[in-house]
Simulated assay, not measured.
Amino acid sequence: MLLSFFEWLEASSLGVFMKDLPATFAVVEAVHLMGLALLGGTVLAQDLRLLNVIMRDVPSNVVTEQGHRWFKVGLWILLLTGVPMLAGVATKCYHNPFYWTKMIALAVGILFVFTLKQPLLRADHATLKPATLKLMALASMSVWFLVAASGRWIGFSG
């Protein structure tokens, strides 16, 4: 059933558009990578601040609040460009274990950020245990690294 959805997506006008027009996939992928750079940069800035590695002179609440705004922009760019990219190579992705690793990690990352990390970090960071902030940062960097690395391996494994 899921395979038939992927076959339908690749045969759709979006899938044909992504496959058949010269350089379309490359342009969309370039924007996707810019979104990844934005998202990854905000994750690193926020999490390295929570680990007290960078921007020690700026309150961590400020860094995480501002970073989260740009994180959401990067996430939207990734989602809006990821769907057309998938459409162009949907059946290939269906059979690729790195695609599924990325999708699971992406779902975990999104749930982690919006149900655990951001609700916790809305509190005054001075009231939170330093170990909690550090564990939150390490978990965040780990899951988003997995999203990026498995996404990169999609291209290498096909």
Rank of each mutant, 00 (worst) to 15 (best):
S140L: 06
L2W: 04
A90I: 06
K102G: 01
F156W: 15
G158I: 15
G109Y: 03
A30K: 06
G35V: 06
S12R: 00
F112G: 00
A107S: 12
R69Q: 13
Y94G: 10
A126W: 03
H95I: 00
V108H: 05
A23K: 10
D57L: 09
I154G: 05
K102C: 11
L3Q: 10
K134A: 11
L120P: 04
A90Y: 06
L111D: 01
M55F: 15
A37K: 08
P84E: 00
V83P: 01
T64Q: 12
W144Y: 07
M1H: 13
R122M: 14
K19T: 07
S60D: 09
L36E: 01
M85F: 00
W8E: 06
T115D: 00
H95G: 13
A139V: 12
W100T: 04
L14Y: 08
A148E: 04
V62P: 03
G40P: 04
V63I: 14
T64G: 07
A131I: 10
L80P: 02
F98A: 06
F98R: 06
Q46M: 15
V43I: 15
Q46W: 04
V43T: 09
T91P: 09
A137D: 00
T101M: 15
V58L: 13
L116S: 10
K72V: 15
S140R: 04
L86W: 06
V63Y: 00
A131D: 02
W76I: 15
L21D: 05
E29D: 12
I154F: 14
A126V: 11
L2K: 07
L50S: 06
L39W: 02
A149C: 11
S12I: 01
A26M: 05
Y99R: 06
L44C: 11
N61D: 11
V62I: 10
A87P: 00
M55C: 14
V83D: 07
G82S: 04
M55W: 15
L36C: 10
T132L: 11
I54M: 13
S13Q: 13
L36G: 13
P22N: 01
L86C: 00
F98G: 04
N96W: 07
S150N: 11
A105R: 03
E29G: 05
D57S: 15
G41C: 08
M1L: 12
V16T: 13
T42C: 14
E10T: 03
G40H: 02
